[in-house]
Design a protein around this nucleic acid. Structure first.
Length: 583
RNA sequence: GCGCCCGUAGCUCAGUGGAUAGAGCGCUCGCCUCCGGAGCGAGAGGUCGCAGGUUCGAAUCCUGCCGGGCGCACCA
């Protein structure tokens, strides 16, 4: 149950009744009415702004209106008291029994607690990573991979029909460079001294085995051919090898896409021609000359006519070229086709997760989607800012020149998959993130991965102790489900329950905002509430979870911490992190 | 020059229309024969970059300015 939606329904029903009974004017719009947890817990359990948002249209003073609503709600069995406060808030306090029942909800739903039908099974396409198939993934790709994957899981939990997709840029000049780089390694594998890798080719050692594999397959047969003869074949060979590499990197991170879409295949199948034809028929393609870019001019800039898309009609700053000077499609043109392809496959919500360096590209793609679909499909681009790799507060320098950058694989090998995934979600996507290799492994309060995992492990530790004290037969899921929850009366116990009952709301809000990082912050809050309760038991022995002299109360408390562990596991599951039962 | 993002406590950051703006670190003061002290509690610390505007109500929305990051024909 989403407690807040539940009471929003109740409040709206009562408001409708007040209208029907003539206490309020007919036809008031109730869509701005909200029910939320008050910022200050001393104000009660729930707070509604109904009186304030309706006062003007109703022609009544907010506080008077709030009083009427309070009277109307007084009959509700779950509401213990109501209070009009401040400028016209109506604060509700619920009976303990209502909160206690939420523990039962959680135990019953298990990790599905927090699932929502918010998305109504709408088809959402999340495209992420989409790194060029020219080398292994590095730390920057890791952030997009985690954000995209967690967002997909989040939307799925919130009731969307989600497809996870990787766009393979296998059609541009960069894959020809890859092919030449591999060909060099092929000659090397045949015993040739290739010396320094020339500038403009990929120098990384990861291409050595690819060259060797090529030599194993073909022997020296390719060596003396013209480039035009070997390049297409070597290119395909190299792209396959790179995608295998990338897939295995992703697997290490626990990221699995549903579909890898090939740019080359789109071009080959004529999808780009068709997409551009669509735009052309709509009168959105023309030949024109662009103004030179303001500020610094590129050295080789020349004024010339280009085939342009009227992006400015859909909110972009300038019209955008779709053909290169050699007549082939630009990358943008195939991206238009790719987005059209997604829409054709029935997706009405498109989400792209990109690096921040692609920020200048957002408007034109959004414009193309708008032009293609007449606004029926919406595109949201999540830009991920840079990850700064640190060690003990010092920035780790990466040398891109030698191809010796920090790979995803090295990162996961050093700190583990779960740590990488969690830390990547401890910032908003549009804020830069410091990833400190030392700090993320610290076992302390200010390492959120540890802090949250510790709460989960601690709960399981208590359950193990309880089984020792009462016997494994006494502490079972059935026994916990049947616990007398009215035993949970301490204010901090009920406080923890309230925090747990917030989970369904967090899921919905994070899903609406497309912000998976909110899960990480929420879990830290749950962990804090649990650790605080734990320590209260240190000072007052009657508050400990396990009281051998009070088995009924103990079972209720074990039910509570099981619920806590369940919510933490549910949240970690959205983040793609495995909960730990011991540290 | 233009566009996008960011500016909140000494530091790192939450908080996308609600009440007295929060957390961690750091600082000050407390709590360990006890279910895992790998933790907890209390305190000090703020013109929410600046100036206008919208609103019953603005850190949040709008406009302008200041400061920082990223990007800026045909590459991907």
């Amino acid at each position: 149950m989403n407690v807040f939606n539940h009471f929003l329904d109740i409040v709206q029903t009562e408001l409708q009744q007040l209208m029907a009974d003539g206490f309020l004017p007919q036809g008031l719009a109730l869509d701005r009415v909200t029910v939320e947890p008050p910022r200050d817990p001393s104000h009660g359990d729930l707070s509604t702004n109904a009186a304030m948002v309706l006062a003007k249209a109703a022609g009544q003073k907010p506080r008077d209106l709030a009083e009427k609503l309070a009277t109307a709600l007084a009959g509700n069995a779950d509401i213990a008291s109501t209070e009009v406060a401040g400028p016209g808030f109506l604060n509700l306090r619920l009976h303990s029994a209502f909160w206690q029942s939420r523990v039962g909800d959680i135990l019953q739903a298990k990790e599905n607690y927090g699932n929502s039908n918010l998305g109504q099974n709408i088809k959402v396409n999340v495209e992420y990573v989409s790194a060029n198939p020219t080398g292994p993934m590095h730390i920057g790709h890791a952030r997009g991979a985690v954000v995209g994957d967690a967002l997909a899981r989040l939307l799925s939990k919130a009731g969307h029909d989600v497809a996870k997709e990787y766009y393979v840029n296998d059609a541009g000049a960069q894959v020809d460079v890859l092919a030449r780089s591999v060909f060099l390694r092929y000659r090397e594998a045949l015993g040739e001294d290739i010396g320094e890798i020339p500038a403009g080719l990929y120098p990384g050692d990861y291409l050595v085995p690819v060259g060797k594999a090529l030599a194993d397959t073909h022997g020296p047969a390719l060596k003396d051919q013209d480039e035009a003869d070997w390049l297409p074949m070597v290119r395909d060979f190299a792209i396959d090898a790179m995608m295998d590499l990338i897939r295995s990197d992703l697997e290490q991170l626990g990221v699995a896409h549903d579909l890898f879409s090939s740019e080359r295949a789109l071009v080959r199948d004529g999808a780009v021609d068709r997409a551009l034809e669509t735009l052309d028929q709509a009168g959105l393609i023309y030949t024109g000359v662009l103004e030179p870019p303001k500020g610094k001019l590129p050295d080789d800039w020349e004024e010339r006519p280009q085939t342009l898309f009227k992006a400015t009609e859909f909110g972009d700053d300038v019209d955008r070229p779709v053909k290169k000077s050699d007549g082939s499609w630009t990358y943008f043109a195939s991206d238009v086709a790719y987005h059209q392809d997604k829409v054709n496959r029935g997706f009405t919500q498109l989400i792209d997760v990109w690096g921040a360096d692609h920020g200048g590209y957002v408007k034109r793609v959004a414009a193309s989607v708008k032009a293609m679909t007449g606004g029926k499909a919406v595109l949201d681009v999540k830009l991920c800012q840079l990850v700064r790799l640190m060690r003990d507060g010092e920035q780790v320098r990466m040398s891109k020149r030698s191809g010796d950058f920090i790979t995803l694989r090295e990162l996961v090998d050093e700190v583990g998959r779960d740590v990488v995934r969690f830390i990547m979600l401890t910032r908003k996507n549009d804020a830069p993130l410091d990833f400190d290799l030392a700090k993320v492994l610290e076992e302390s309060r200010d390492n959120p991965v540890f802090y949250v995992q510790y709460a989960h492990a601690r709960a399981h530790s208590v359950l193990r102790h309880a089984k020792d004290a009462f016997g494994a037969d006494a502490v079972t899921a059935d026994a916990l489900a049947g616990a007398d929850l009215s035993q949970l009366t301490d204010e901090d116990e009920l406080g923890l329950v309230r925090t747990l009952a917030n989970w369904p709301r967090i899921v919905e809000q994070a899903a609406i905002a497309h912000e998976p990082h909110r899960i990480a912050f929420y879990l830290a809050e749950v962990a804090a509430a649990f650790h605080a309760l734990w320590n209260k038991g240190r000072e007052d022995a009657t508050l400990r979870f396990i009281r051998e002299d009070a088995p009924v109360q103990t079972m209720a408390r074990l039910a509570l911490i099981t619920a806590m562990a369940t919510v933490v596991a549910s949240g970690l599951n959205v983040m793609g992190v495995q909960p730990k039962e011991s540290m």
